[in-house]
């Protein structure tokens, strides 16, 4: 089971998330010395940590593992890893950042463990047909005119959740975590070319799925 180093996935720092990109001197949530108490093995500190950070960590796990049971499993693995690794936490990153990396790693480990099947085959011809068939009357205008932004976000999230695991994972790592292709390749333990290919297939599948859902029917 991998334990987190302090240099990989950080919580996304988009404006909606509000996590500063530069590490502050100390974690403001650690005003009562939570890390020190965890490192001493203080039982109550474990519970505080779970209550304080568990909901957010579960939400992160769900991005990779939409099935609730899978996300719960990843959360369990993450907290077990936290318990094992907290002694080595030196505060080079914020506690929240460290926990984020741990749960992302746990989710990816879970995906990796269960994707012993070969890479999902992409129906190149079907995707190419869809790509050729979409014109200026594709779904972007539908999205602009007929849907609120919130509705579009819900639909896109729903369709990403339906993608094969490997494709969903690369989209989360790239578009939500903001990682570069090389970082994604390292996390997934694949070559950069494979990571790039997986991303491209994921985008094409997502676009095709959105096209099927949002393109107005041309039936008379």
């Amino acid at each position: 089971m991998s334990t987190p180093d302090e240099s990989r996935v950080a919580p996304p720092s988009g404006p909606a998330h509000g996590v500063p990109t530069s590490p502050p001197a100390g974690d403001p949530r650690d005003a009562d010395g939570l890390v020190a108490r965890l490192q001493r093995g203080d039982d109550a500190a474990f519970e505080t940590l779970v209550r304080m950070h568990g909901p957010r960590m579960l939400a992160v796990a769900r991005r990779y593992l939409p099935q609730d049971a899978d996300a719960q499993d990843a959360l369990q693995d993450a907290f077990v890893n936290v318990a094992r690794a907290i002694g080595g936490f030196e505060g080079a990153s914020r506690l929240e950042t460290w926990l984020h990396r741990i749960v992302v790693n746990a989710a990816l480990m879970k995906l990796r463990a269960r994707s012993r099947r070969p890479e999902v085959s992409v129906d190149e011809e079907a995707l190419a047909r869809i790509e050729r068939s979409r014109g200026p009357s594709g779904w972007s205008s539908t999205a602009d005119e007929a849907l609120s932004r919130r509705e579009l976000e819900e639909i896109v999230r729903d369709e990403v959740a339906r993608l094969p695991d490997d494709y969903r994972a690369v989209l989360v790592l790239r578009d939500v975590e903001g990682l570069g292709v090389d970082e994604i390749a390292a996390l997934l333990d694949v070559g950069a070319a494979a990571a790039k290919m997986r991303l491209q297939h994921a985008r094409r599948m997502l676009r095709a799925a959105l096209g099927a859902r949002l393109t107005p029917s041309e039936a008379p």
Partner: peptide, 26 residues
């Protein structure tokens, strides 16, 4: 249009994922 759709999908996915709705307690 292809570029527009890919960019729209990416932005909508990112915004949906980072929405600030508070998570319910465990």
């Amino acid at each position: 249009e292809a570029l527009r759709e890919h960019v729209l999908a990416r932005e909508a996915f990112r915004d949906a994922s980072l929405a600030t709705a508070p998570e319910p307690p465990l």
